[in-house]
């Protein structure tokens, strides 16, 4: 089975986010970059599929120099190959631009299944994986929290919805967007880390992928981030004194009379 995983590099969820000097992007000086947490579940699902059917896992990432670190981590976990999409023409891409470039890469790999994360914890978009499915003309399932392959051409998945779940029967090839809970991602061991150094990492630009530069990057983007603001500062409020009964009585009074939320 040929498997592809879309992997994005994002600031760690622990990172303190500061707005950069340009006022429209974040200050990356002290940011620790990690594999997008949901893509870790996608990666694990890919490795389990490979263990089940044998085959090959290719990880694909679009981004700057540092993306290679994220992809190298995936190689250490057991992916076989990495493909980096990098070109000045990709800069300023919106979700659809990223999806167009990734779609070209997916076509080149020709997988039976593509795994991605349900959401990038950077821009909170939840868009790219589903867009790739659309551009490929493939089915998709998003927010996948359980997956069972029936055979190499179909799977039964469960996806999470508000207060419940949907079960889908999915014909492959398809894009499956992983949610937390799908599996327990493994850790890389030393042998994996050593082996990863020798695994191939192909860097491709727009021309190599046959992408029309006008459809990606700032040139193709329909949306632009104009400015960013930190969330409104909250100041610590008041601690309510007394014994528990007094505290609770006073709290309910404040909620009613002062905050007016009851």
């Amino acid at each position: 089975m040929k498997i592809a995983v879309l992997v994005k590099q994002v600031p760690s969820s622990e990172a303190k986010i500061r707005i950069g000097a340009d006022g429209k992007s974040i200050d990356t000086a002290e940011v620790e970059w990690v594999v997008n947490p949901y893509d870790e579940f996608a990666m694990e699902a890919a490795l389990q599929a490979k263990e089940k059917f044998s085959g090959e896992v290719t990880v694909i990432g679009l981004g700057g120099d540092k993306v290679e670190e994220a992809l190298r981590q995936c190689l250490a976990l057991g992916a076989d190959k990495a493909m980096v999409l990098r070109d000045a023409a990709f800069e300023g891409s919106d979700s659809l631009g990223v999806a167009r470039a990734l779609t070209a890469a997916v076509k080149e790999v020709g997988p039976d299944v593509v795994f991605c994360g349900k959401l990038g914890i950077d821009h909170d978009n939840s868009a790219v994986g589903v867009m790739v499915a659309e551009l490929m003309g493939w089915p998709h399932a998003s927010v996948v929290s359980s997956l069972e392959f029936n055979d190499e051409s179909s799977a039964t998945v469960v996806r999470e919805i508000e207060g419940g779940s949907e079960t889908l029967s999915v014909k492959l090839p398809a894009v499956l967007a992983a949610n937390k809970g799908l599996n327990e991602p493994r850790y890389a061991n030393l042998k994996g880390i050593m082996m990863a150094k020798k695994k191939p990492m192909d860097v491709k630009d727009a021309a190599a992928l046959g992408i029309d530069a006008g459809t990606v990057g700032a040139a193709g983007a329909m949306t632009t981030t104009e400015s960013m603001q930190p969330p409104a500062e909250r100041s610590a409020g008041r601690l309510i004194d007394g014994d528990p009964q007094q505290q609770v009585t006073e709290l309910v009074r404040l909620l009613k009379d002062e905050a007016k939320v009851l």
């Binding site: 919106d94 979700s95 659809l96 999806a99 909170d124 978009n125 939840s126 868009a127 790219v128 589903v130 867009m131 499915a133 659309e134 551009l135 998709h140 998003s142 927010v143 996806r159 999470e160 919805i161 508000e162 983007a221 329909m222 949306t223």
Partner: peptide, 23 residues
């Protein structure tokens, strides 16, 4: 921006070459 909306909207955006803004 519900489970259903998030599932369907990106496909409609891609099908129409539209700008997409979530949430």
């Amino acid at each position: 921006a519900s489970a259903m909306g998030r599932d369907l909207a990106p496909r409609i955006a891609a099908r129409n070459g539209a700008g997409f803004v979530s949430e």
